[in-house]
Every structure is written in structure tokens, then in C-alpha cells.
Write a protein that binds this DNA or RNA. Structure first.
Length: 230
DNA sequence: GCGACAG
DNA sequence: ATCTTGTCGC
């Protein structure tokens, strides 16, 4: 796909610099709107190999609304940064961007495992990626990074706001009964309510919406016969 | 000062 | 994230 190859900033930086960049980039995030003319949705997930030395990014492109997989890319490169809570994007985005550069198709919406603006400085990995791609993105987290919330009702579809410093930064959503809820947040160019609806629309019989579930399936499976490219 | 802490 | 066996349930 054609994306902006303009370098926003360096990825290998010290923690203080990374935090400064987050403060600088966060104001550019657009927290409203909805994706238009959606024909394809992409799911992104990152995994590691060689005890963390290699980062593996997976992108699955699905047709909407059939949710059929139309393309998938697996891209590996050397890991540059350690995992630091709050600085996840600096560790995982270089590989994700490398994968997007190899993707032939173009999604109108991207779902990322991790937070969007539900982040201490409002720039989680989904928001950061959205800024880079200049595409609508949604953060689909499996656990909480920051913020507080009321217990979520048991039924599928039940939700409660995730609030941090008096600000609603996301929605805790029960995507299946008897399963831990997901933390949905705006990544970029989409409103929270729309983000939640898109996630609901991509649910089948599992906890995760199809785009991230399929990417997850490929990203965290054994190191086996998975080679680069599709 | 003491916890909490996406993947 | 990753390492890992069996086990419970539709």
C-alpha cells in the first residue's frame, strides 16, 4: 500500500526523549469521526522470537463485511528497544511499519492490539500508528494500562467507560460472556462510540474482533514454517 | 515513598 | 510478549 514514508522521528531513543515525543505528537490525534468507504480492515499484531531478539509483525487484511482474509504479511526485523510500560510503540512500531510497507492493499480502518489514547500521555501504540499511517485506527487492549472503571455487566455487549484524570479515554467492553472484557479506545480519526461499534461488528464467536484475532493467531503461533511475506 | 504497569 | 500439560466444556 502507499503510505507516508516521511520519518516522523527516530524510533531508537532514550525514555526521556520518547516521552517528549509523545507529548509533542498526542495533540495531533483526532478523536472523532468515522472511517469512510470501508472495503478492507486490517488487523495488526506483534510477536517475538529468539528470546526477544527478533520482532515479528503480522498484518491481516480482511474484506468488509465478509471478513474474508484477502492478504497477510509477516515481517521480521531486529528488536531495538526493551519493553517499558507506556513506551510500547517505540518497541513495536518499527516492525509494524515495515510490514505495512510490504502490504499491497490499503485498509480504511486498522485495529491494533494495545491502547489508543487510553495511555498516560494519550499516545498508545494504536494512536501512534494511526498518526504515522494517517488512517483511522482502533486500540484493542486485553488488559488495562491506566484509568479506572466500574465493573462490566456480564452480558455480551455490556460496556462501561474507562476514565483517567476525569477524562473518558476508552470503553471497557464485554465481547463474550464469562470472558475478561476488552479495553477499546480511539486510535486516530475515529470517535469512541464508532470504535466500539466497529469492534462489535467484527465479532464472531471469539473474544477478539476478527482482524486482531487473525493477526494474533499468526503472530503468536510457533516459530515453525512461518517465513516472511504472505 | 509505595504500588501499578498495553505487549 | 513468551515458556508450558492437562483439563473442563460446548
Amino acid at each position: 500500500m502507499s503510505i507516508n514514508f516521511r520519518e516522523l522521528h527516530d524510533w531508537t531513543v532514550d525514555p526521556e526523549t520518547a516521552i517528549g515525543l509523545q507529548h509533542q505528537l498526542a495533540p495531533n490525534i483526532i478523536r472523532e469521526g468515522e472511517p469512510e468507504h470501508v472495503e478492507h480492515i486490517a488487523g495488526v499484531d506483534i510477536g517475538f522470537e529468539d528470546e526477544g531478539a527478533t520482532t515479528r509483525a503480522v498484518i491481516v487484511l480482511m474484506h468488509w463485511p465478509s471478513l474474508e482474509i484477502v492478504e497477510q504479511v509477516i515481517h521480521r526485523e531486529a528488536t531495538r528497544m526493551p519493553y517499558v510500560p507506556g513506551l510500547l510503540s517505540f518497541r513495536e512500531l518499527p516492525a509494524a511499519i515495515g510490514a505495512f510497507k510490504r502490504l499491497e492493499g490499503t485498509p480504511q480502518l486498522v485495529m491494533v492490539d494495545g491502547m489508543g489514547i487510553a495511555h498516560p500521555r494519550r499516545l498508545g501504540i494504536a494512536a501512534h500508528l494511526g498518526l504515522w499511517l494517517e488512517l483511522p485506527t482502533i486500540g484493542v487492549g486485553k488488559s488495562r494500562l491506566c484509568g479506572r472503571h466500574e465493573p462490566v455487566a456480564e452480558e455480551k455487549g455490556a460496556r462501561t467507560p474507562l476514565v483517567d484524570r476525569s477524562e473518558t479515554i476508552g470503553m471497557v467492553l464485554r465481547t463474550r460472556e464469562r470472558v475478561k472484557p476488552l479495553y477499546i479506545s480511539t486510535g486516530h480519526r475515529i470517535g469512541l462510540d464508532n470504535a466500539v461499534e466497529w469492534v462489535m461488528c467484527c465479532l464472531t464467536r471469539y473474544k477478539l474482533p476478527e482482524p486482531t484475532r487473525q493477526a494474533d493467531r499468526l503472530a503468536s503461533r510457533r516459530t515453525r514454517a512461518l517465513r516472511n511475506d504472505s
